[in-house]
């Protein structure tokens, strides 16, 4: 239960960078992106909440959107990272690696000792 809560907070904090990573250098429309994230084990619990997240990233200038015609059905809104989004992701990746190593280190130390 305690672990569950911790993971829901971790998920909330890291999901937006997973979104930025998937949208880096490749534009995707919402459904495509959500499906891809949904297939990753343990990353997304409620797929619908990715849409408010995307809207926030757009308001913060980290992603851009473009409407494009689709072969079938109505036009789709495509998302892609902006320069600002790429910088935010790069900064996060550097910190994340340090953080992850530190946590692994301490957890491992606990197991040995």
């Amino acid at each position: 239960m305690v672990a569950e809560k911790a993971f829901s907070q971790l998920r909330r904090g890291t999901l937006e960078f997973c979104v930025l990573a998937l949208l880096q250098g490749e534009e995707r429309y919402g459904f495509e992106l959500v499906k891809e994230l949904g297939e990753v084990d343990g990353l997304v619990t409620t797929e619908g909440t990715i849409y408010p997240l995307l809207a926030r990233l757009r308001r913060e200038g980290l992603v851009d959107t473009t409407w494009r015609e689709s072969g079938s059905g109505p036009p789709r809104r495509y998302y892609q990272t902006t320069d600002q989004g790429r910088q935010a992701l790069a900064a996060f990746v550097a910190d994340w690696e340090r953080f992850r190593n530190s946590v692994d280190n301490v957890l491992g130390r606990g197991r040995q000792g």
């Binding site: 949904g38 619990t45 409620t46 619908g48 909440t49 408010p52 926030r56």
Partner: peptide
């Protein structure tokens, strides 16, 4: 069900 309940989605949109 995978999308989540409307209330959960809107709660994520009101965050902050």
């Amino acid at each position: 069900t995978r999308l989540g309940s409307p209330a959960e989605i809107v709660a994520a949109a009101t965050d902050g």
